[in-house]
Design a binder for these strands. Structure first.
Length: 409
RNA sequence: GGCGGGGUGGCGGAGCGGCCAAACGCACCUGGCUGUAAACCAGGCGCCCUGAGAUGGGCUACGCAGGUUCGAAUCCUGCCCCCGCCA
């Protein structure tokens, strides 16, 4: 087991300030880090979907920074709480999942986490390890540790209560279970988004009951999603997946509102603070074109996940396809049986649906009538068109399909 | 347990026997403008069929199941669920 390293002042600042919303209690975490003792860094997740968004990357990157000092990440798979549904930041109850779904999701999520985390310094635990043997006696004892008034302090509970929206009783159990996780793994620090503040503090409160020192909370700002309004989340659909291919990730980043450029640079890249300030100032004073800044941001972020080379290529592709309006180098292909002369009459509505580019033929017809579809650069308005081997079908701005001969592939 | 209110499209929310595939807003999609940004303008936004298209046909849809009617999201019956007040 390797040594824990005490951070330099610069590192300390980077860890505790950059991309951090709040450290609770102030100063405590710094002291722990300077002591040089191995810290157990808890981060939990509910495997409700097999998707990891860039929003998660913010916390994962922070965790990684701490791992580099030699500390240990303790990931907790919320295989129990996922079946309850975390109300945090939600205004409604989530559906419950089956154990099979939960486990499959957990595996998918973990794989993506390790795109950022150091596997060697990570411990993966499941709530079922300790909640499996939990009995009614324990549940009631746990529930006795908090009051209804406390629960109603939490923003979303308070709001739902005020608005007369339902709050199921089991939802009150959720923060307690998550808090008990901290006890079960002996967490020194728990990382999470600011929306997790209540739950994390609950853990802090619970630990002393079990003879443990209270954990620190390291809270990260929530990454704003593609809509530029709400936090990035899979359920809102305003997200970029952490494992999105480079060009896709780049394109989505470019579609972000301008005012998010610095936000993303700060939370998802290692671009130094001074440079960040320069960019922010440049944008504000109009000396820096937002598009240039955004391209820089997009490239930096993509580079974090795919390397600089891939990021560079993604940028070139972006410029080629959207600025020069040329066809992309790579497009999904769709085989079509052709005549000996390598051409074929096809019904585009069928092709697009079969290729998965459009959800239904009705939708395809609409797109046709709206002039959103072109074949080899020519706008088409009728479904039946002549295509040849290698024809490019473009739907809207960024959906492409390359038609190939089914016989000759 | 009692009394009252309510369940409509991804969300909010109208409609309360035919003109309803369902107003309006949001979200979303497409086109225009552009920097694949925002804003703005225009259009679209259940599914399927009609060898081109549709102001053309058909099928599903307003909590669930039945019923009344030529015709139901709209009326009736039963059931399920939610909310509020009282206990």
């Amino acid at each position: 087991m390797d040594e824990v390293r005490v951070p330099s002042p610069q590192e300390l600042k980077r860890i505790l300030r950059r991309g951090v919303a709040e450290v609770i209690p102030e100063g405590e975490l710094e002291r722990l880090l300077m002591e040089g003792r191995l810290l157990r860094l808890k981060m939990g997740f509910d495997p409700t979907r097999p998707v990891v968004t860039l929003g998660w990357a913010v916390g994962l990157r922070k965790l990684r920074q701490l791992q580099e000092l030699g500390h240990r990440a303790v990931l907790i798979i919320g295989d129990i709480t996922a079946q309850i549904g975390d109300p945090s930041g939600q205004s409604e109850t989530r559906p419950m999942l089956s154990p099979g779904e939960v486990e499959a999701n957990a595996q998918a999520v973990l794989e993506k986490f390790f795109l950022i985390l150091d596997r060697e310094r990570t411990e993966v635990r499941r709530q079922s390890e300790w909640f499996g043997p939990f009995g009614l006696r324990e549940v009631v004892a746990l529930a006795a540790k908090a009051t209804v008034a406390q629960m109603l302090q939490r923003e979303d509970f308070a709001q739902r209560y005020r608005l007369g929206r339902p709050i199921a009783l089991h939802e009150f159990i959720y923060p307690l279970l998550q808090a008990y996780d901290s006890v079960a793994v002996g967490a020194h620090v728990e990382l999470g988004g600011t929306d997790q503040k209540f739950n994390i503090l609950m853990g802090r409160e619970l630990q002393p009951y079990y003879g443990q020192p209270p954990q620190c909370a390291l809270l990260m700002p929530l990454l704003i999603g593609l809509d530029g309004q709400r936090k990035m989340s899979q359920s809102l659909g305003n997200y970029i997946a952490i494992d999105a291919p480079p060009h896709d990730m780049y394109g989505k980043l470019m579609s972000l509102p301008d005012n998010l450029i610095v936000h993303y640079l700060e939370l998802l890249t290692d671009v130094p603070d001074e440079e960040l300030e320069d960019i922010a100032r440049g944008l504000q004073e109009g000396k820096l074109h937002p598009m240039d800044a955004k391209m820089y941001m997009a490239k930096e972020v993509v580079a974090q996940f795919h390397g600089l080379e891939a990021a560079q290529e993604a940028e070139e592709e972006f410029v080629r396809v959207f600025r020069a309006r040329q066809v992309p180098t790579a497009a999904p292909t769709f085989p079509v049986p052709m005549q000996p002369d390598k051409t074929s009459f096809v019904d585009l509505t069928r092709v697009l649906v079969d290729a998965g580019l459009v959800p239904s033929r009705s939708e395809a017809r609409r797109l046709l009538s709206q002039g959103a579809i072109e074949v080899d650069g020519e706008m088409v308005r009728t479904p039946r068109v002549l295509v040849r081997h290698g024809s490019i079908v473009r739907v809207g701005k960024h959906r492409f399909l390359r038609i190939v001969d089914a016989h000759s592939s």
